[in-house]
Design a protein around this nucleic acid. Structure first.
Lengths: 146, 146
DNA sequence: CTTGCTCCTACAGTCGCTGTAGACTGTATC
DNA sequence: GATACAGTCTACAGCGACTGTAGGAGCAAG
């Protein structure tokens, strides 16, 4: 179980080297030991932790939420309802976003469906973007990037 | 049809004042006329254009795509297949994102479902984030923010 | 005339990284 | 031992699409 360099950790946890250093800078990874020449040295604990972070990111958790989850992880005797709350909140966000995107999909399909070729001047897609009187997405808050 | 200030334009097109100035800075709104004291002055053309931009943003188009659409708008005699292509591309992105989020929803639900209270140490949500061996989102590319 | 809103510029901050520059370290091959 | 090349280091700038702040100047109503 000898220590590994940042590059090994990177391929073990499938997180880029630069990203690992970034995570360290925002206090997500603690301060690693260093070799005599100043290179970061990690152990298998760090692989686990970093993999956890990666997977939580893949699940769409914010860095703040992940910090909270890591904090909870280090206190295994605490009630896990806090974890549940974070996960529930995340699920709610995902579902909200799904509803937005479904509305978006319907509207884009409608636009494209109505456009039957021709000139830009009479293009129904352009018209649809211009005239949004009957548009359901108007009721939504501003859309976050795809 | 007398000119309006940026604040009027803002409420007419439902785009924030600061955002209008930002759009100007990235070349999306042209350079407006100015009053003697230097205040921006707009006409109804600008309301239309800005509303168009807002609605396109609500549909999730990138600023680059919107720039293209505006460019096409000013040439109404051109074939509208270019517009169609941009819209199709956008629809494809939306559908891809939908698929990602649906996978996410399933996994979050599964995690929460399996967690039946207790201590963090035995929490199935934490375990699920840790052990991602059977996780379908692992196959996806990195998720963009919600 | 004063109050209080709107407008101006210029710049820093958001999030979650990614990319760049320039220098040093570690390892493999000749 | 020399050389080549990959890996590592720090520090900082940039991405997209804005948002927020500071410190002023303009303008309409009471």
């Amino acid at each position: 179980m000898k220590p590994m360099t940042i590059g090994r950790l990177s391929s073990a946890a499938k997180v880029k080297v630069t990203t690992i250093r970034y995570y360290e800078s925002i206090g997500l990874m603690g301060t690693p030991n260093r070799s005599a020449s100043g290179q970061r040295l990690y152990g298998s604990v760090d692989v686990d932790r970093l993999s956890f972070v990666r997977h939580a990111r893949e699940l769409g958790f914010s860095m703040d939420a992940i910090k909270d989850l890591i904090g909870l992880q280090t206190e295994p005797d605490q009630d896990c309802s806090a974890v549940d709350t974070i996960a529930q909140k995340q699920l709610a966000e995902v579902q909200k976003r799904l509803a937005q995107l479904e509305a978006l999909e319907r509207e884009l399909k409608r636009m494209i469906e109505n456009c039957r070729g021709g000139k830009v001047g009479g293009c129904q897609v352009m018209a649809a973007i211009n005239d949004h009187s009957e548009c359901e997405t108007d009721k939504h808050e501003r859309l976050k990037p795809l």
